[in-house]
Design a protein around this nucleic acid. Structure first.
Lengths: 192, 192
DNA sequence: ATACTAACTTAAACCAGCTTAAGTTTTTTT
DNA sequence: AAAAAAACTTAAGCTGGTTTAAGTTAGTAT
């Protein structure tokens, strides 16, 4: 069950099978209930998470007190508040489990040790961050190129499982509009 | 003049002074006129650029034919279409010089060689990508938390030099609204 | 089972920001 | 220096999406 991370690493970079257990030893396993917080805004961010099973979201509260979801992490994705994790600032995002979620956890000190013992892992994280960066740019592209309606259509045809899995309020906070407008869109769609 | 990249690397990671020239040898120097294209949508993306002097932008054309600017790169920033550079797809963004711009250029093969000879550089790029990723997330946060007016206010107080440096049309394509609306905002501001 | 709370829907009034179209100013080209 | 093109401004009308507020349905706890 917790071998997912090992597999993921072996997929991305070439590494000795025998090193994997040593690498995984730097991590610990943790589970969180649905709605549990892994990190809260304005706290210090001590951990980096890899999702084995379940789903996390990264979000913040805007000045009107409305939660805005920036990213999701499902199986095989990493999540943290990067800037805060590197100790520069307090977290400006919160991380919450949307479902009961099992994660691999590492803190900054263990990460440093891991990278010292296995510098090849640097390359693995490089790929992870490049992928995350590219995904975030694509997100900005989508925000600019699609109307909210079109963005919803795109998202719901591309990730239909996701739509089932996530409460509507969280979904709209990710898509960037109000639950009321989503209702309107859904009604409109059913007519077709 | 072209020592900027060396300095930048030495700032981010610990490295022998004597290795720097060997590292820089993998790059070549190039200059582009104002408005020149370094990359165009739907081409293959062969190079990764580091800006010594000047300013680049990454953008795409939306379905109405309007250019949308996703990112700028000034002195000390890297730029490419990441996904395309790694050879997976054709470019979905274009890169253009906003001013006469001097860059350090490297192609994929030389980058691989460089990383083979100096694996420490992997750590340098790790920092670069983490920073770029964090910046992109922050951008999404800003899009969600500010009205267009507030975003313009923020941007123009935080980067006043930038406002001078960039033509209004490109600025609005970055801020995500129309030149007409920018005029309106400026008029409104002058009254105060 | 019953009550309480959270998630979702509906509809009307409203507004931030867009579109269009014409005018002005600046820059580039010849 | 003149002409053409590009960059910016102004103003009116319009629309995608929000706000508000009330009603419905589903989930959860007692």
């Amino acid at each position: 069950m917790s071998e997912q991370l090992g597999k993921h690493i072996a997929q991305q970079i070439s590494i000795f099978e025998t090193d994997l257990p040593k690498i995984l030893a730097y991590f610990s396993l943790a589970t969180f209930d649905k709605k549990a917080y892994l990190l809260q805004e304005n706290q210090s961010c001590k951990y980096l998470y890899f999702v084995n099973k379940g789903c996390l979201r990264l979000f913040f509260c805007d000045d009107k007190g409305i939660e805005q979801t920036i990213q999701f992490a499902i199986e095989g994705w990493w999540m943290t508040d990067l800037t805060a994790f590197h100790g520069e600032k307090l977290a400006e995002f919160s991380i919450q489990a949307i479902e009961a979620t099992q994660v691999m956890v590492i803190d900054k000190i263990n990460l440093e040790e891991l990278l010292k013992e296995f510098p090849q892992i640097e390359r693995y994280f490089n790929k992870i961050y490049q992928r995350a960066y590219a995904a975030s740019l694509l997100r900005v592209k989508h925000i600019f190129s699609f109307s909210k309606e079109a963005f919803y259509q795109l998202f719901s045809t591309k990730y239909p499982q996701f739509i089932q899995r996530i409460p509507q309020k969280i979904l709209t906070s990710f898509l960037g509009f109000t639950p009321e407008y989503l209702s309107e869109l859904r009604k409109k769609n059913m007519k077709k």
